[in-house]
């Protein structure tokens, strides 16, 4: 299972908590974690950006056969979202039933619990998306 170890979890909190990411200065490619070199154009210059917290739902599905560590949450929704700046991102969709979702609908980012490591009692948080009311 994906063990939640504090240093490993902590080093990515900027992205997971605040949707802070890195944009390539040359080609504009978004990298969620601090890159050394752009995967698309191989430039090495980046600027840190806060990704927009709203966007539209391009597609969604429901996880009915969960991985270890997510058994108690199942079924839950995974969405493919296009943020308002064009960045495409995967995330859980929360605060709604799958029947309430429509492709193309507006969603916004919110800060939520993603999982609890039962052994070590560590709670991990992450962005999730919810329909804009």
């Amino acid at each position: 299972m994906f063990k939640i170890k504090v240093p490993r979890y902590w080093r990515h909190k900027d992205f997971r908590y605040r949707l802070n990411a890195w944009k390539c200065n040359h080609c504009g490619e978004t990298h969620f974690f601090k890159p050394l070199i752009c995967r698309k154009c191989r430039s090495r210059e980046f600027i840190q950006v806060s990704l927009p917290e709203t966007g539209k739902l391009l597609a969604y599905t429901v996880v009915r056969s969960p991985p270890e560590g997510f058994e108690l949450q199942s079924p839950y929704i995974i969405g493919f979202i296009e943020l308002d700046d064009g960045t495409r991102i995967l995330g859980q969709v929360t605060d709604c039933q799958p029947e309430e979702l429509k492709q193309g609908m507006r969603v916004e980012a919110t800060f939520r619990r993603i999982r609890e490591d039962e052994e070590d009692k560590i709670i991990a948080y992450c962005y999730k998306f919810r329909p804009v009311i």
Binding site: F2, V62, P67, I78, L90
Partner: peptide, 11 residues
């Protein structure tokens, strides 16, 4: 990124 949010190969 993808594993962390609970996405699966099938999803």
């Amino acid at each position: 990124y993808v594993g962390f949010i609970g996405a699966t190969f099938y999803s």
